[in-house]
Design a protein around this nucleic acid. Structure first.
Lengths: 335, 335
DNA sequence: TTGTAAGCGTTATCAC
DNA sequence: GTGATAACGCTTACAA
């Protein structure tokens, strides 16, 4: 492997000059530039970034902490991050934690060890105190999840409001008994959505039934488990509000197994508006999140922290939208 | 930020000793170890890996070149890679290329610049010559795609054989006119599958109809486009063999839009056996790939190259399996 | 068992 | 314009 020294020797200049050429300084003679470039070509030289990185103390890399990439939702957020990062010359590194605190901690050390310039959390297992503590010492932002009480720039939707809107929509269309399938309190967004759901029920004068709240997670299989519990109920609820499209699909699929057809016998509402929502049969009525924009904005916030240290706490809320398709009965036909 | 020097000073020892403690050398006095560890604690010191990395010329990081993470197929392969990598102390970095040669090249430079110890390609836009050339100079392996003529260790299924099996299954169940939706020649696997499909037709004495081969890609929307072309045909084919589950779903969904019901009016076979295949309605009959194992094995091959330089060319073929569900009519009911 | 010092490949600060 | 040279934070001979 050729180094900068080899190039310098071959071009008959000093390493400093080679470095200048490499970094496009304007105080190098044209002939010298050419001589250096020729040497670079001939030696097939590629600068070793480790040296530069060590010297400059910046890696031009960021780490994205993601609980899973099996859910299309995160894929899209990551895409947004990556697009923004690339535009600023940053590389994106993905760490899939599986919501395992140990794995998360190990990756967090990458930031501590200066292997990355900053971290975007799509989820964390840390509590608000540890999370704030980390964010105080290293450039970090949170996306998708608004961790209660944590001092860290965050971009997400208003989960409370989104669930409120979704539940109201179900109520306005004549559904009274609404099951709620969520990921429990592992995710702050889930908790917040559950509160929005409860609020809507309350304002409609419907008393909440605890057993209708099913904490199963947000995978396909979580939906399957939720459906099993629903099938075991003495009477079917009017609707199921699942806090992810995957869960909704798991529910629908499992209910179908027992001859229960969505939209005829029961309504199901999803969350996220992943691409599959549009292609599933029935097409999913769901709450749409601006996934790409969330990621994009998250990177911008991070870059801000990396460059300015400006720690002004920001919580950016991006708009959600109710995407009306075929999995929810409309016009109160079940009244 | 505390450095190794600060720790040394605080502990009253030399940096060498600190380094020894850090790396668990056994020739350090217990008391010294403790003194150093105390200093580390007090300073909240975290070793800067850049220094070590520069010195050791290894990053303990690998790069995975993936065309997209929107397709669950790749998520699962990446999971396999990451699991294996983690077990060996390696971190996994994901580069999403979108099959853009420029983006791919830019990331390839990361290997050239020693930012990673090796690269796993889940897809490449390079031709066999460039690909071989790269693999000759840097630790690299290919997964999922067997690039014709490229000298690089590879792990994948036997795509030819898999498509052969799939097509035979359709034929044996009475389907004669079979449309084939593939990604065209961008992916070697696609090309190979198309040949398997053609082979099966030939051996059944059925003459291939060129217009039944639809090169659209492997996304949901590719399936949608394929369905549009199918609907424009003078008569509907008996079956559609899509070379990914996403495409199959796109086809099914779009056909449903026009009142054509899969399994009653037409059969659709997928490929990959993503999780959604099991949860889609109808449940997808598909060719299952051992995605996790492919990823896992790919890392092992890469580690081998990183450590031994043993460049023996290997092509590992893992078994596929026909997963029989509800999207294909069986027992020749359409004969 | 520990310390000294060279070196990894760069970039930055001086001189000249 | 260009060249020495120190420095980045660490590991590792070699010496003590």
């Amino acid at each position: 492997m050729a180094t900068i020294k080899d190039v310098a020797k071959k071009a008959g200049v000093s390493v400093a000059t080679v470095s200048r050429v490499l970094n496009h300084y304007d105080n190098v003679r044209q002939e010298t530039i050419e001589a250096v470039q020729t040497a670079i070509q001939e030696l097939d030289y590629h600068p070793n970034f480790l040296g530069r990185t060590l010297r400059r103390q910046e890696t031009m890399k960021i780490l994205v902490m993601v609980p899973t990439i099996s859910n299309q939702f995160y894929s899209r957020v990551v895409k947004g991050i990556q697009t923004a990062a690339q535009a600023h010359g940053y590389h994106t590194m993905l760490a899939i934690t599986g919501s395992d605190p140990e794995i998360e901690q190990e990756h967090i050390n990458m930031a501590r060890r200066k292997l990355v310039d900053g971290v975007i959390f799509l989820h964390t297992t840390m509590d608000a105190i540890d999370f704030s503590d980390f964010a105080e010492n290293y450039p970090a932002v949170s996306a998708c999840e608004l961790v209660e009480g944590a001092k860290i720039p965050t971009v997400s939707i208003d989960d409370y409001r989104a669930a409120l809107d979704g539940t109201r929509f179900l109520l306005h269309n004549g559904h009274k008994r609404i099951a709620f399938v969520s990921a429990g309190d592992l995710y702050d967004s889930s908790r917040r959505r559950r509160m929005g759901y409860a609020h809507a029920l309350r304002e409609a004068g419907i008393e909440a039934e605890d057993h209708l709240i099913l904490n199963e997670g947000f995978t396909f299989n979580a939906g399957k488990r939720a459906a099993a519990r629903i099938l075991a109920m003495p009477s079917l609820p009017d609707a199921v509000f699942a806090t992810s499209d995957s869960t909704a699909i798991g529910v629908i699929s499992a209910l179908a197994e027992h001859g229960i057809q969505v939209c005829r016998d029961i309504s199901v509402m999803g969350f996220d508006n992943n691409q599959i929502a549009e292609f599933y049969l029935p097409h999913l009525t769901t709450i749409s999140q601006p996934q790409f924009d969330i990621g994009h904005k998250a990177f911008e916030l991070l870059l801000n922290k990396i460059q300015n240290q400006s720690c002004e706490e920001q919580h950016i809320l991006l708009p959600h939208k109710l995407e009306c398709r075929n999995s929810v009965k409309q016009n109160g036909s079940s009244k």
